[in-house]
């Protein structure tokens, strides 16, 4: 399945998670220093520390491989990039809960929720002091281009590119039909909608976590289309601007269903 021959690559580049970590960390630096996010280094450190510590504890308990710490790091970076709160406790707990849910809520050795997504949705629902700022990325064209290309490259490596493309494609088609063809807005109105960093980050990073989406390619295509349609409905008629994140939270039953009717071997990270 891999397009790039692994033999020629150094050990570092064999695990796509290393790319993901670099990718997410780069955007965090961009967000803090270029976009002047209200995210202090103390908050970032707190999220990284508690999330990775929780992951470490669960690894020890399960006699797991230490390389899974990378997944913990990816989750914590994802939280930093999407979740906002004025409370350090909320942010740290979001990380703890995200990782713990990964180990507790499982079915057939596969965790059901995307950890970062679970942490985000849960903390917004129960803590009363967390939120998502969908507008925080702006629509800087160059930045979005880099986000897309790098995201695409990583997904290509783990073989989940089609999930993002189908999600974005279906959503674009629906939005194009409604915004441009039906309502008669100009094309730049539509493009502005799709130049949201939050949407692209979600598409290239969150819904493509191979552990929490269907294993079979066919299932993933249908799964991503359903996600896109639900996102479109929620954002258009219920004015829910963070719709994809909420929809993804309710997708696990569908993932299980698709894994049942389209069985395929579970994804394994290359841990070498």
């Amino acid at each position: 399945m891999r397009a790039i021959s692994l033999s020629t690559k150094s050990i570092f580049f064999q695990d796509a998670r290393n790319y993901q970590i670099l990718y997410l960390a780069a955007f965090l630096v961009f967000g803090i220093f270029k976009l002047h996010w209200d995210l202090s280094l103390i908050k970032v450190s707190a999220i990284l520390f508690t999330t990775c510590l929780t992951q470490f504890a669960w690894i020890k308990i399960n006699n797991g491989q230490l390389s899974s710490l990378k997944s913990g790091l990816i989750t914590s970076l994802g939280l930093c990039l999407i979740l906002n709160s004025t409370s350090i406790i909320t942010l740290s707990l979001a990380g703890m809960l995200a990782i713990s849910a990964k180990y507790i809520i499982r079915y057939k050795h596969k965790h059901l929720f995307n950890p970062a997504n679970f942490g985000i949705v849960l903390s917004i629902l129960i803590f009363n002091d967390a939120w998502i700022s969908p507008g925080q990325w702006g629509s800087d064209a160059l930045f979005l281009f880099v986000l897309t290309v790098l995201g695409g490259f990583i997904l290509h490596k783990i073989g989940r590119l089609e999930t993002s493309l189908i999600f974005l494609g279906v959503l674009f088609l629906l939005e194009f039909t409604r915004t441009v063809l039906y309502q008669g807005w100009e094309m730049d109105v539509l493009l502005h909608k799709f130049s949201s960093g939050t949407l692209l980050l979600f598409s290239f990073f969150m819904i493509t976590d191979p552990m929490t989406i269907p294993n079979s390619k066919k299932a993933r295509i249908i799964w991503a289309s359903i996600l896109a349609v639900a996102t479109f409905i929620l954002s258009t008629w219920m004015q829910l601007y963070t719709a994809p994140i909420w929809v993804l939270f309710f997708m696990p039953p569908l993932t299980l269903f698709f894994d049942k009717i389209y069985p395929y071997k579970k994804f394994e990270w290359n841990n070498n």
Binding site: L35, H36, S133, P134, G135, W137
Partner: peptide, 10 residues
């Protein structure tokens, strides 16, 4: 209150 489709900065 913040804007959701443009950046809100201080």
């Amino acid at each position: 209150v913040e804007c959701t489709n443009y950046r809100t900065v201080k």
